[in-house]
Design a protein around this nucleic acid. Structure first.
Lengths: 147, 147
DNA sequence: TAAGATTGATAAATCAATCTTA
DNA sequence: TAAGATTGATTTATCAATCTTA
């Protein structure tokens, strides 16, 4: 039987390690952004959009927990580079859809391929541990989306 | 027996989940920085320094994979807020040590306490899985430091 | 009057040029 | 001449004020 106290200590160790590991891989992510000539905010925008559906400026601002003006600047940049465009919202002339262009879809895909490349440290782990990690993180990601 | 191909697929799933999870917890980290009135670069600087030993500007720049001027601006900010100070390097009048002040040490500790608080999703996991996570990430963090 | 977004002003992060000492 | 760091200029990101439509 594991006490709540023990469990918290375990979770703290796990999180601390995960945190340090993720931070230690930052340079790789920065390089990927640089190669694609994307700012961190550009990357976040691409991650929030996809080929099939747009989002309004307002929705993006809410999702990022940021001000609406932030979204305007980012979309301006993407639009200048031909990665996204604004489109009118049927029935509300204040609002605007942000949609990816084909080129934006391509860039998003390139970015994801780069970012989702597992770091060598993970490849060095035992398969058994990787199974646990995959199961656990696919679960917590799901939990959070549901929340 | 697990083929290299299978293992890479497993690692990719694990990394993808870990990545999404970490990204999903960004808002909490941003709030922690805001409460302590620290920019992301301030936080990185505090993470790189400690109460017992300073580092030179040059070392910090190398460690962050960034330009030296970046370090100057960050240390300027920390110095203005009384969190760090520059000190001469014995024997090389070009170089400077950056050391935390007592207040800087305190702020670093406050920041770490906030950042290392495990997200609720982790606390909801089975103790057995947490043991695996703690072991695995403590190992990969160690590997990377050695690299 | 409020919702949705843009514009203008400030702060933060990066890049190039400069200054000082080795 | 190069190493170590700072200063100045540009780009990003954030904050406050404004504009347009509901």
């Amino acid at each position: 039987m594991t006490s709540g106290r023990d469990k918290h200590a375990l979770a703290a160790r796990a999180w601390r390690g995960l945190f340090d590991f993720f931070v230690s891989t930052r340079a790789q992510r920065d390089k990927a952004l640089e190669r694609l000539d994307l700012t961190p905010n550009d990357a976040r925008a691409l991650a929030s959009l996809n080929a099939h559906e747009g989002k309004t400026m307002r929705t993006l601002a809410e999702q990022w927990g940021t001000d609406a003006s932030n979204v305007t600047w980012v979309v301006d940049r993407l639009e200048k580079r031909g990665l996204a465009k604004r489109q009118p919202v049927e029935g509300d002339r204040r609002a605007k859809w942000v949609v990816l262009t084909p080129r934006g879809v391509k860039t998003k895909s390139d970015l994801e391929r780069a970012l989702h490349q597992p770091p060598p440290e993970l490849l060095a782990l035992e398969a058994e541990d990787l199974v646990t990690l995959a199961r656990v993180f696919e679960k917590v990601a799901g939990d959070r989306h549901g929340a």
